[in-house]
């Protein structure tokens, strides 16, 4: 006789007897949302840690000696070595990373060796500028793409859907510099309606629109296609679901089915989609800010990368990853709050 498996205990003691499939009650004391929050925060921290390592490593292996790139080709080797020592670049890389992170957490982000300014206020200033632009873009994107996405889902496979879908798909992968260039030529050069170079606006709506409307449109184009498509798919699926059929056969009108039964199911996933797309939005900032000469964080990161300004680069990238991770975590939590299955725990 031979054993087929190699199990642990030979004679299985009659196992402890929590009824199978009935384990849900075991954690009654612990609120499912709370445990989700803890889990999400933990994941966010891990992600940020990995990003910080990645950025640190990339910044450290950039070509060219940091000291050399600051002092220029005519400095002596001794001068370069002295500067490197001053910047702490001769220490072991782990120690460098440790002191960098420790400093970053305490708010000491160092000084840019290239621009000779303290990093933190400079980066934060650019971040705020970018938030104006990103904020305006989101204010345009969310209602427009969700609204038209719902329209497309409702008219599935009829002409409004085809029109919205084809436009959305066409814009989906259109590089910002392409649409931006065309916008500049049309609106700044031919029509002379809006500036081709965006200044930081004061806080009046007119000034924000005047300066930032044009730069926000390329971002709108890319995200519109994506979010509208997701909204359309969610709405169309929910409309063909069995519970929508139940609602119709209960005698509800089409609009009542849409408002009372379909949207609350189809829009929750859209929240996650929007949060994930924030990454693209921020990436798009690099391009639009360059194209429109706008002093935002994208422009800052680009300049820092090409100038080998490590301190600026690390702070900028970490900040962006932080914004993105926080947004994602919030979106996940919002999703859970809106979804009774997650809120109350599955059965």
């Amino acid at each position: 006789m031979a054993e087929l498996t190699s199990p642990a205990a030979p004679a299985a003691a009659p196992a402890p007897r929590p009824a199978p499939g009935a384990a849900a009650g075991a954690f009654l004391g612990r609120h499912p949302l709370l445990s989700l929050l803890v889990k999400r925060l933990w994941l966010a921290l891990v992600t940020l840690f990995l990003v910080s390592v990645l950025v640190f490593v990339i910044a450290r292996v950039m070509p060219g000696d940091v000291g050399r790139s600051i002092l220029g080709p005519y400095a002596s080797a001794a001068q370069v070595a002295a500067l490197d020592r001053k910047l702490g670049l001769d220490r072991p890389i782990l120690a460098q990373y440790g002191s960098y992170i420790w400093g970053f957490v305490r708010g000491d982000w160092g000084t840019s060796p290239v621009l000779s300014v303290p990093v933190r206020p400079y980066v934060m200033g650019h971040l705020v500028n970018s938030l104006y632009l990103a904020g305006l873009a989101l204010v345009e994107i969310i209602p427009l793409s969700i609204g038209l996405g719902i329209v497309a889902g409702w008219f599935r496979d009829r002409w409004p859907d085809r029109l919205i879908s084809v436009v959305g798909v066409s814009l989906l992968a259109l590089p910002e510099f392409v649409s931006g260039t065309i916008l500049i030529v049309v609106f700044s050069i031919e029509l002379r309606a809006l500036p081709s170079s965006a200044a930081v606006p004061d806080l009046s709506i007119v000034d924000i629109l005047h300066n930032l409307l044009l730069p926000s449109l390329p971002l709108l184009f890319v995200l519109f296609g994506y979010i509208a498509r997701m909204t359309r798919a969610g709405t169309a699926d929910a409309l063909s679901s069995n519970y929508a059929r139940t609602a119709y056969l209960k005698g509800l009108s089409g609009t009542a089915v849409l408002w009372k039964h379909v949207l609350r199911n189809s829009l929750t996933p859209t929240i996650t989609v929007i949060a994930v797309q924030l990454g693209y939005l921020i990436g798009g900032l690099v391009v639009t800010e360059r194209l429109f000469n706008y002093p935002g964080i994208g422009n800052l990161i680009y300049t820092a990368a090409t100038d080998h300004d490590q301190a600026m680069l690390q702070a900028g990238v970490l900040l962006i990853a932080g914004v993105y991770t926080v947004a994602n975590t919030l979106a996940d939590l919002l999703y859970a709050v809106l979804n009774p299955r997650l809120r109350l725990g599955g059965s």
Binding site: L43, V46, T47, L48, L50, V51, L54, V55, I58, A59, V61, M62, P63, G279, Y280, I282, G283, G284, V286, V287, G298, I301, Y302, A305, T306, H308, L313, V317, I320, A321, Y324, T325, N328
Partner: peptide, 23 residues
């Protein structure tokens, strides 16, 4: 986890970082 971390960085920024490193 690593994939999530990579996705937390906009691809253009990741590319800008890497190309300034790789040449």
């Amino acid at each position: 986890r690593v994939v999530d971390a990579l996705l937390a960085l906009p691809p253009i920024i990741l590319a800008a970082l890497a190309l300034s490193m790789l040449g």
